[in-house]
């Protein structure tokens, strides 16, 4: 078995273990989650299973879109959260909710994520180095944050405010199989698009011109990956709100084991992202806090320092060179 096949296999096993563990663990510990009584059935199959599966799919979508954006922009700090895709997706969803078009929230999240993705790739395409790309993303994220605040201010129904704030914090609490289907569909669409652009990502290792010279259609690759990443980030955000850093941490964890190959990295990043988010969600459910810690908050608490670490390491490397 090749190295990357072994990596994928172990990540699948770990994902499955995490999902099963999510059925056992929670505020009410269950010794036999597969028991047949009604109460257990309700807790496990109505609450825990959809929630865990949503967490996995959201994490996989974020991990995949992060890895794809990193390959496209040739930048290990790229991620749908950092680059503003998630922020704009949340803005789209919040606006749809605040103005009474809840049914259009997923479509709005997708459209806004796509808008941010196109903008950030257009601005950051001329390979200006990791730092400037992240700064462009910070600008976009702040803009989205400001506009979300504005939408909340203007929201005709102040009673919905709490729900809307939840969106910006990120959570998979109380998600149903409808949410699973929604994020699953977006992930499948995004993954298909990204898959068709994967070889182009390998070519882009050589830089844009050399990639074209070995026969890669760079324009096509860019279109596929931007669309795919936006679908993943839009779907994840439409269901779970803004959850940051998974898209950075997951590829970072599996990069060396994938031989630093931007295409081989995609599937392991998705699997690692899913596992990470299921584990993080088990964590927030087990924490003995009065109100449950939001998953997005937990992700930021764990992912923020990792992001800073990668950025610092990159900075010292470019100082050496």
């Amino acid at each position: 078995m090749s190295n990357s096949a072994r990596l994928v296999f172990s990540l699948v096993v770990v994902s499955a273990l995490a999902l099963v563990a999510a059925l056992y663990l929670g505020p009410v510990p269950l010794a036999h989650p597969f028991a047949g009584d009604d109460e257990t059935k309700t807790i496990v199959w109505q609450i825990r299973f959809p929630r865990a599966l949503t967490a996995w799919l959201v994490g996989a979508a974020l991990g995949l879109s992060g890895a794809a954006l990193q390959g496209l922009l040739r930048n290990p700090l790229a991620d749908s959260g950092v680059l503003g895709l998630s922020g704009f997706a949340a803005l789209g969803a919040v606006m749809a909710f605040a103005f009474g078009f809840a049914a259009f929230a997923p479509a709005a999240a997708l459209a806004f994520a796509l808008f941010a993705a196109v903008l950030v790739t257009a601005l950051g395409w001329a390979h200006r180095g990791p730092a400037s790309l992240v700064l462009i993303g910070v600008g976009l994220s702040s803009t989205a944050g400001g506009l979300i605040a504005l939408a909340l201010n203007l929201a005709p129904n102040p009673g919905a405010l709490a729900d809307l704030v939840n969106w910006t914090l990120g959570s998979v609490e109380g998600r149903s199989l409808n949410d699973v289907a929604l994020v699953g569909g977006f992930l499948a669409a995004g993954a298909t698009l990204i898959l068709f652009g994967a070889r182009g990502l390998q070519a882009l290792t050589l830089g844009e011109e050399a990639a074209a010279a070995i026969g890669a259609n760079v324009t096509r690759t860019r279109a596929l990956v931007v669309l795919g990443a936006a679908a993943c980030a839009g779907g994840a955000t439409a269901v779970a709100g803004v959850i940051g850093f998974v898209g950075i941490a997951a590829p970072h964890l599996v990069r060396a084991a994938s031989g630093h190959d931007p295409a081989r990295l995609l599937l392991p990043s998705a699997l690692a992202g899913g596992t990470m988010l299921v584990c993080a969600d088990i964590g927030v459910r087990l924490l003995p806090t009065d109100t449950e810690l939001k998953l997005g908050v937990a992700a930021a608490l764990i992912g923020g320092p990792i992001f800073a670490l990668i950025a610092a390491r990159l900075a010292s490397r470019s100082a050496d060179a």
């Binding site: 290792t205 050589l206 050399a210 010279a213």
Partner: peptide, 15 residues
């Protein structure tokens, strides 16, 4: 035609 640019890059440290 194969092309070798002036400063060839390998952005990711592949083998």
């Amino acid at each position: 035609a194969a092309y070798l640019p002036q400063r060839p890059q390998s952005i990711w440290p592949i083998s």
